[in-house]
Design a protein around this nucleic acid. Structure first.
Lengths: 184, 184
DNA sequence: GTTTGTTTTTGAACCGAGTATGGTTATTGT
DNA sequence: ACAATAACCATACTCGGTTCAAAAACAAAC
C-alpha cells in the first residue's frame, strides 16, 4: 500500500492520487479514513499514552520512574529484529521528509498536553507544562537518535543496546538536571 | 499588511491571493520575499541565536547560566508595554492557529540543531541532542505561557513579572532536574 | 537621451493536497 | 420486496505554492 510507495520513491515524490489509484479507491475515500497524507505514513506511530502511564502508576512510584520503567522495557523489547525491515523502511521515509518529521512532532503535541494536564495535579500549571515539554522533547530525541543509528547501518542489536543506554541517560538528565552530566 | 488581515479575520480565513492583492503585488512576488504563508505571520519571531549565546559566553560561565542570563534580561525588557497591542494581536493570531503553532515549532528546530552542534564540543552527541531538545522545548513553553497570560487579560506588567518568575523556574528545572520541583 | 544590459515584477498557467457535491452502489432491517 | 442508511465514486473546485516567459523598471555607458 502507501508505505511501499513511500519507501520506493520517497514521501514527497508520491502523490495521493497515485496512492488512491494503487489502492483502487477514490481520493475522497482515502481521506475519509486518513485525515492527511502524513497520516498515511505515520499511522500506528507515536501511540505511547504518556498521560496514562503517569496517571496509572503505583502510588509509591514517582512519575519519572514510571516513565523510565516503561521506556526501559520498550528498549529491551526492541532488540529482536522481528519486522526490522519494515521499521527501517519507515524510519528512512520519516527521517528523509521534513514534512513527516514535523507531523511526528505534532503527534507528540497532544500527548504533551495530556501529560501536562495530569501533572497539574501535583505541580503548578507552568511547572507541569515545562516538565511535559522536556519529557516529550527528550522522547522525540531518543526516537530520532535510534532511527539515525539504524539507518547508519548499525546492527539492530547494537542499536537496541544503544537505545537502552540512551533511555537511562535521558531520564538521568530529566531527573537530576543538566549540571549532573559528565563531559565526554 | 498581512498582519492586519490575519488579526482581523484569522490566519486560515485569509488567502494569500487576498494578501497579495492588499499589498498591491503579484502572488509570485510575495513568495519571492516570504517562503510560505506562515512566514508572513511569523517574520521576526523566534530569532534568538541559542547556539551563538552558548558559543560566545565567557569562559567561566556554564552554558545554562549564559542562557538563563539572556532570558532573564529578555523578561526584564518585556515589561514596558511599548508595542503591546501589536504583540498581543500577533499572539492571538499564533495561538489560534495550529498551523502557525506548528510553524513556530519548526523555527526552533533549526535553533535546536545548532545548539546541539555547539554542545557537542562538551558532551556526547546524544547528551547534547537531549539537552538542546529540553532547552528548546522549555523556551517554547515559556513563550506559550507568556502569550496565554497576555491573552487571558493579565496586565502587561503582571505578565512580564510572571514571565520573569517562569524563566527562573524553567532554568531551575533544567539545571537541577524535575525531582527538585516542589509540588504546589 | 537613447541604447544596452540586468534585476524585479508580473500574469497566467500549472501542480498537488484537501474539500464539496451529487449521484451510484451495497447493506441492512422489516 | 422495499425502503433507509451508509459507503463509495467521479468530478470539480479551493487554496498554497511553483514555474516561466514576457514585460517593466532600473542602471550604466555612450
Amino acid at each position: 500500500m502507501a508505505l511501499r510507495l513511500f519507501a520506493e520513491r520517497g514521501f514527497d515524490a508520491v502523490t495521493v492520487n497515485e496512492i488512491a489509484e494503487a489502492a483502487e479507491v477514490a481520493k475522497a475515500t482515502l481521506f475519509a479514513y486518513f485525515p492527511s497524507k502524513e497520516s498515511l505514513a505515520l499511522n500506528g506511530v507515536g501511540g505511547d499514552d504518556l498521560a496514562g502511564i503517569v496517571a496509572r502508576r503505583p502510588a509509591d512510584e514517582t512519575f519519572l520512574d514510571a516513565l523510565r520503567a516503561h521506556y526501559r522495557a520498550f528498549a529491551a523489547g526492541q532488540m529482536p529484529d522481528a519486522g526490522l525491515d519494515a521499521l527501517l523502511a519507515r524510519a528512512r521515509v520519516i527521517q528523509d521528509s521534513p514534512a513527516l518529521l514535523n507531523a511526528a512532532n505534532g503527534l507528540l503535541y497532544q500527548q504533551r498536553q495530556a501529560l501536562a494536564q495530569v501533572l497539574t495535579d501535583e505541580y503548578s500549571p507552568t511547572a507541569a507544562a515545562l516538565m511535559a515539554a522536556q519529557i516529550a522533547a527528550s522522547l522525540l530525541t531518543l526516537q530520532e537518535t535510534y532511527f539515525q543509528r539504524l539507518l547508519g547501518g548499525i546492527s539492530a542489536q547494537d542499536a537496541g543496546r544503544a537505545l537502552a543506554r540512551d533511555v537511562e541517560l535521558a531520564f538521568d538528565l530529566l531527573e537530576h538536571g543538566l549540571t549532573h552530566a559528565e563531559g565526554h
